[in-house]
Simulated assay, not measured.
Amino acid sequence: MTEILLPPGDEFLREETIRGGMDLLFFSNTRHLRHADDTLAELGLGRAHHRIMYFVARQPGINVTALLAILGITKQSFGRVAKQLIAKGLMEQHTGERDRRQRLLKLTPEGAKLEKAIFDDLHDNVVRAYRAAGSEAVTGLWIVLQHLMGEEARVQFRTVQRL
Rank of each mutant, 00 (worst) to 15 (best):
Gly150Trp: 03
Asp99Ile: 13
His147Asp: 07
Asn29Val: 07
Gln59Leu: 03
His147Ser: 10
Met22Ala: 14
Gly150Ala: 07
Arg19Glu: 01
Glu136Met: 06
Gly89Met: 02
Ser135Met: 07
Leu122Arg: 15
Gly72Asn: 04
Ala112Asp: 12
Tyr130Leu: 08
Phe27Ala: 03
Arg101Ala: 09
Thr108Lys: 12
Ile118His: 11
Asp23Leu: 00
Val155Phe: 08
His50Phe: 12
Pro109Glu: 05
Phe27Trp: 13
Arg14Tyr: 03
Gly96Ser: 09
Thr108Gly: 01
Pro8Val: 12
Arg58Val: 06
Ala82Cys: 05
Val127Glu: 09
Val56Leu: 11
Thr159Phe: 09
Ala69Phe: 02
Thr65Ser: 13
Lys75Ile: 01
Phe12Ile: 08
Gly79Met: 08
Ala112Pro: 00
Arg14Gly: 02
Leu114Met: 10
Val81Ile: 15
Leu24Glu: 08
Ile18Ser: 00
Lys83Phe: 09
Glu16Cys: 06
Gly9Trp: 05
His32Ile: 00
Phe119Met: 11
Ala132Phe: 05
Pro8Gly: 04
Ser77Met: 05
Ile4Asn: 12
Met149Pro: 13
Leu6Pro: 00
Gly96Phe: 10
Glu92Arg: 15
Lys75Asp: 13
Asn29Arg: 03
Arg100Lys: 15
Leu71Pro: 11
Leu145Pro: 00
His32Lys: 00
Asn125Tyr: 01
Gly140Leu: 13
Tyr54Thr: 14
Ala69Gly: 09
Arg47His: 12
Thr39Trp: 03
Phe157Leu: 14
Leu85Ser: 04
Met22Asn: 13
His35Lys: 15
Arg47Phe: 07
Thr17Ile: 08
Glu15Ala: 09
Arg154Lys: 02
Val160Glu: 03
Ile52Lys: 13
Leu90Cys: 13
His50Gln: 05
Leu71Val: 00
Asn125Phe: 02
Glu151Pro: 10
Tyr130Ala: 15
Asp121Ile: 05
Gln156Glu: 08
Ala132Gln: 11
Asp10Leu: 15
Asp99Gly: 02
Lys75Thr: 12
Ala48Tyr: 02
Ala36Phe: 01
Gly89Phe: 04
Phe78Trp: 05
Ala69Arg: 09
Ala133Val: 07
Val64Phe: 05
Gly150Val: 10
Glu92Gln: 15
Ile73Gln: 13
Leu114Tyr: 05
Arg101Phe: 11
Leu107Pro: 15
Pro109Val: 04
Thr17His: 12
Tyr54Met: 11
His49Ile: 02
Thr65Cys: 01
Lys75Asn: 07
Ile70Leu: 03
Pro7Trp: 05
